[in-house]
Amino acid sequence: MKYKILEKPGCEDAYDLIQDALRKKATIIIFACCKVSYEGRALSELNWGERIIMIKPDGAFLIHQEKKVEPVNWQPPKSRTRAYIKNDNLFLESHRRSPKELLTVEVKKVQFISYANMEDYEELEQAGYEKDMSDMIMEKPHMIEEGFTPTTREYSVEHGFIDILGKDSDNNLMILELKARKAGVTAVKQLRRYIQDMENTDNDYLREVNAEKKKIRGLLVAPSIMDDALELIEEEGIEFVSVEPPRELKRDKKVTLDFF
């Protein structure tokens, strides 16, 4: 990793380092006393304070305070950064073209500034989400019930996308709403809307999979369910199936003879 660090630089030295970093498409980190203004879809202003400024090679521009995970101001990737000196202060601007947005940072005093050319080609692998549950159920449908046949995923209806559609051993249509965490009333209400959408829809899907519309079964699939949600599914005639999402990352899977 190639990097450069300056402690308590003057305005011109800080400007020169930023220009050098922008040319080299490096990641820039600045600890400074600054003031921030934003104009675009809304207006905001943040008065003087000590903050962390981060500028990434993809154009992302973030300003962090000492608390909270999220930046207090930010611009997304593909924004364009420029620096200039005015009235003996360093100014940083981040321009976004569409929609038009401008984030302006006036820097009064820099405590620490650095840049580094980082190398990182890895993609984040995740497990334990609804997508992982969906993959697992499609691969092992019997975990929902014996005779369950999944037929499609992310099926579009008026109120959103049904996670999994399928049919049971009696050819009744089954609608699965998946939640990777404890399911609440909101999930039950969403599933109820999906059931109503399918009841009110005369489409070719049912004929394609030879499912019956006379009985539509709604199944809420999650590791556990809240008490108020359990009461609601009993009122609505919806079923609950307890399924834990997989916790194994793909990189942890080992190929054995069982694979063949």
Rank of each mutant, 00 (worst) to 15 (best):
K2L: 13
K2V: 11
K4D: 00
L6Y: 02
E7N: 14
Y15S: 13
D16M: 05
I18V: 05
D20N: 10
L22C: 08
L22M: 12
K24D: 06
I28S: 01
I29H: 05
I30G: 11
F31P: 04
F31T: 07
C33H: 09
K35A: 00
L43G: 09
E45L: 07
R51K: 10
I53P: 10
M54V: 12
I55H: 02
K56H: 05
D58Y: 03
F61V: 00
H64Y: 15
E70H: 15
N73T: 09
K78Y: 13
K86R: 08
D88I: 04
F91D: 04
H95I: 12
P99W: 04
L102N: 13
E106S: 15
V107M: 09
K108F: 14
K108H: 14
I113H: 00
S114R: 13
Y115F: 14
M118E: 07
D120E: 12
L124K: 14
M133Y: 10
S134A: 13
D135W: 08
P141V: 00
E145V: 02
G147M: 07
T149N: 14
T149L: 14
T151P: 04
T152R: 01
E154Y: 06
V157C: 14
H159F: 09
G160W: 01
G160K: 02
I162W: 10
D168V: 07
L173M: 12
I175V: 12
I175D: 01
V185H: 01
T186M: 09
A187P: 11
K189T: 08
R207H: 02
E212D: 06
E212N: 07
G218P: 02
A222P: 05
S224A: 15
M226Y: 12
E234V: 11
E236A: 00
E239M: 08
E239V: 09
F240W: 03
R247G: 08
K250G: 08
K253D: 03
K253P: 07
K254T: 05
V255E: 09
L257S: 10
D258Q: 04
D258K: 11
F259W: 04
F259E: 11
